[in-house]
């Protein structure tokens, strides 16, 4: 299990989801990816994408101007 981070600040919907999707494609099951975004839409979109793609959202934090989402990569990709 390895921890990774992805800076998706200043990207607008749906680019944060696209960046997460492309990054997760290169990770292994159990790896964790922390995504930092500034578009609040990501708080809906990234968890929705994770649910349909078999990944788990471990933590979701709305910090005002930024939000942080911690994802655990699932097996089914």
């Amino acid at each position: 299990m390895t921890d990774f981070t992805l800076d998706a600040r200043r990207l607008l919907c749906p680019l944060p989801v696209i960046r997460v999707q492309d990054r997760v494609a290169g990770l292994s099951p159990g790896d964790r990816l922390e995504v930092v975004c500034s578009d609040p839409g990501a708080l809906n979109d990234i968890p929705a994408w994770c649910r349909m793609s078999g990944h788990r959202v471990l933590d979701l934090r709305d910090e005002g101007d930024e939000c942080r989402i911690l994802i655990e990569v699932g097996a089914a990709r």
Binding site: C13, P14, V17, I18, Q21, P40, G41, L43, N44, D45, A48, W49, R51, M52, S53
Partner: peptide, 20 residues
Amino acid sequence: RKRNNALWVAEQLGIRLHIE
């Protein structure tokens, strides 16, 4: 919060969505 319609639709349909 604004939702991404394509993602929302995919979730309603129970399908995976690939965004390119």
